[in-house]
Amino acid sequence: MNIFRLAGDMTHLMSVLVLLLKIHTIKSCAGISLKTQELYALVFATRYLDIFTDFISVYNTIMKLIFLGSSFSIVWYMRRHKLVRRSYDKEQDTFRHFFLVLPCLLLALVMNEKFTFKEVMWAFSLYLEAVAILPQLVLLQRTKNIDNLTGQYVFLLGAYRAFYIFNWIYRYFTEPHYVHWITWISGLVQTLLYADFFYYYFNSWKNNVKLHLPA
């Protein structure tokens, strides 16, 4: 464990807590893409298949349970909770996330570290996580005024993977044989997808104006 990875995990945890806070306290999911939340639930489900077979550490297991539990409960809230689901913007959240899942699955079947079920699922979860934010970014561009919690949620979600990139650089130089091209390239693509969001988020913070993404 290094400081970059810990910072990344804590930032990721905060993004989830901000979203749960928003949904649980003000019973609203306005501006949140259900498609992205479903993709994230799938990402964790396919990435943490080994949660009960490969014990890494208590920390690792607890964090996996938190991410699995929170992502599925957010999907449940947005689909089932009578108050929350009313604030879900069904008409605007129209990204066909199936067209993200299929290419990631095909790519994982071709590009993986080892052609086993677990490794293919691992690669699939990395490719899918890289593009999972797209429905949310599209929804943000359609949503006229983005509320602070939603902006903070997306910002933290992007920042966590940026910390992971520093973690991979650190581990590459400190651990022999630590090479995971699939993870590195997926993580880099994922962070780059946030680039323009970061740009507008930083500007709105600097000029102290409401965050607004150009259509």
């Binding site: 990875r5 995990d9 990721h12 080994d50 490969d54 890494i56 690792n60 964090m63 996996k64 991410f67 080892k114 691992w122 992971y164 973690n167 993870t183």
Partner: peptide
């Protein structure tokens, strides 16, 4: 053979 290192990151 080297035990395949389980993926230790989240």
């Amino acid at each position: 053979d080297q035990e395949r290192a389980a993926h230790d990151e989240l």
